[in-house]
């Protein structure tokens, strides 16, 4: 997995609340057996008109946001399905950090598995960052995971919380499965005890 350490980049504002996984990547693009190549269809139904042309009003189609690496979003981002195609598409587009007041549980977990940092902040601070993002390409935010700090284009710093284990994995680009395999003995023990106590499982 790619490491996430410190990111300085353009932030795109998406104030709409409840942006669901069907909006992030519509189901027609779930018929792939690969993880890559989904970025072109990120936010497909908002980003493209029915004839396939770009919708110039959509934020990521505006010249100043085409290279965005950070998304500042409305409440409950990523609600809906468990499709990991949503973070795959976000990552493939080039976005590595999403900031909101809240995220849906499964989407939140899926981000960490793909080197994307989702940051939860109170409404007031998301409002500050949303205003900063609305300034366009000249407003480059800095997200420092090690220090757990966001710095706005005006130099204001906003601290954020992150689970210590998830932070460790992101900073080092660690593969969860490899880490769990190191605890195989504990799983073996649990399994043999469980075979006695719950033999019907």
């Amino acid at each position: 997995m790619d490491k996430f350490e410190k990111l300085q980049g353009i932030a795109a504002p998406m104030p709409l609340i409840n942006i669901d996984t069907d909006m992030i990547i519509p189901k027609v693009f779930l018929k792939t057996i690969k993880r890559s190549g989904l970025g072109v269809n990120l936010f497909d139904e908002m980003r493209y008109n029915a004839d396939g042309s770009e919708n110039p009003d959509f934020v990521l189609n505006k010249p100043q946001y085409r290279d965005a690496e950070i998304l500042v979003a409305g409440d409950n981002f990523g609600c809906g399905s468990s499709r990991e195609h949503a973070p795959w598409a976000i990552k493939d587009f080039g976005i590595k950090c999403v900031i909101s007041t809240s995220f849906a549980d499964i989407f939140f977990n899926n981000c960490f598995k793909n080197g994307i940092l989702p940051i939860v902040l109170p409404q007031e601070q998301v409002d500050t960052l949303m205003k900063d993002a609305e300034k366009g390409a000249n407003a480059r935010m800095t997200v420092d995971l090690e220090a757990q700090e966001i710095t706005t284009s005006d130099g204001e710093t906003i601290p954020f919380e992150v689970d210590a284990f998830k932070k460790h994995c992101l900073l080092n680009g660690l593969d969860d499965i490899g880490l769990t395999m190191e605890k195989a003995a504990a799983i073996d023990t649990f399994e043999s005890q469980s075979a006695q106590s719950r033999p019907w499982v």
């Binding site: 499964i106 977990n109 284990f165 799983i187």
Partner: peptide, 21 residues
């Protein structure tokens, strides 16, 4: 019972466990 992403599907296939809080 709950939903998981594909990375977690792979994790469960390989280890029969999930990393959870």
């Amino acid at each position: 019972a709950h939903g998981i992403g594909t990375s977690e599907v792979e994790h469960v296939l390989a280890t029969q466990t999930l990393i959870q809080k």
